[in-house]
């Protein structure tokens, strides 16, 4: 029978393995790395979970702690002990140094992706109540969508991309990069009125209390007509296949 791996090694291997798996799956296979701030929290709770699994019985705990106890108490391990005791503070110092060292990179900036919209807003010289704003179902739906597509191609695709995935030719120059409408987390989570507001008033129209925000979205009400914005919104939902958010079922005007 092969020698069993010691419990402590098992625990460490599990943690390292999970970390490696996160890295492998997200960074390499999917190309979508987990942000370091989140990965830290993930690993914190993974460690907590591993600790729980390895210590819920007395025998397992004893086995887990035994090597550490031996390291501290066993007189024969004095050399290793000295090395460990010397290395630990050095390691801590290095972590602190690395963490505090100034970097060239700009500091992390958080922005609210969906700030709370004002309840009503003045656009096109008129007042719109955003809580109730919905465009009635158009009769010539297809035609309007096609017109929206034209408006999109003429104005929006440079940044938001011809596949509406936020990867237009200018996208690389912007930080943050333009919104991908294909994502389930964007327009599918929002009402048409929200889109109307964001398109018409752009970055400058964002509320102050949702700061910090950064958006290079132009104020489209100066370039497009009200009708054109509605058409573009129809196009966005039609092309991506998303449905706008509704507050109740009977308010569903967007069936088509």
């Amino acid at each position: 029978m092969a020698r069993r791996i010691p419990r402590l090694a098992q625990a460490v291997l599990t943690i390292v393995g999970i970390y490696g798996a996160f890295r492998l799956v997200f960074d390499v296979l999917l190309g979508q790395p987990i942000p370091s701030s989140l990965l830290t929290m993930y690993m914190f709770f993974v460690v907590a979970g591993v600790y729980m699994v390895f210590t819920f019985t007395e025998e397992s705990t004893r086995e887990l702690v035994a090597p550490i106890r031996a390291l501290v108490e066993d007189p024969r391990r004095k050399p290793i002990r000295n090395v460990v005791f010397a290395l630990t503070p050095l390691l801590a110092a290095w972590f602190t140094y690395a963490g505090l060292q100034p970097r060239i990179e700009a500091p992390v900036e958080l922005r609210s992706i969906h700030p709370a919209p004002p309840s009503s807003v003045k656009m096109f010289g008129k007042r719109f109540d955003l809580l109730k704003l919905e465009k009635e179902e158009p009769k010539k739906f297809r035609q309007l969508v096609a017109e929206g597509a034209k408006v999109y191609v003429e104005n929006c695709h440079f940044c938001h991309g011809d596949k509406l995935d936020g990867r237009g030719p200018y996208a690389e120059g912007l930080n943050p990069v333009p919104m991908s409408f294909q994502d389930v987390g964007t327009i599918a989570q929002l009402q048409e009125s929200f889109l109307f507001w964001r398109i018409a008033t752009g970055g400058p129209g964002l509320p102050a209390d949702a700061a910090p925000w950064i958006s290079s979205m132009p104020v489209w009400e100066t370039f497009l007509s009200e009708e054109e914005i509605w058409k573009v919104i129809l196009f966005l939902y039609d092309y991506t296949g998303h449905r706008p958010r509704l507050w109740s079922e009977n308010a569903d005007h967007s069936k088509h």
Partner: peptide
């Protein structure tokens, strides 16, 4: 440190 500190308006 786990969440950003947002200053309310």
């Amino acid at each position: 440190f786990g969440v950003p500190q947002i200053e309310p308006a």
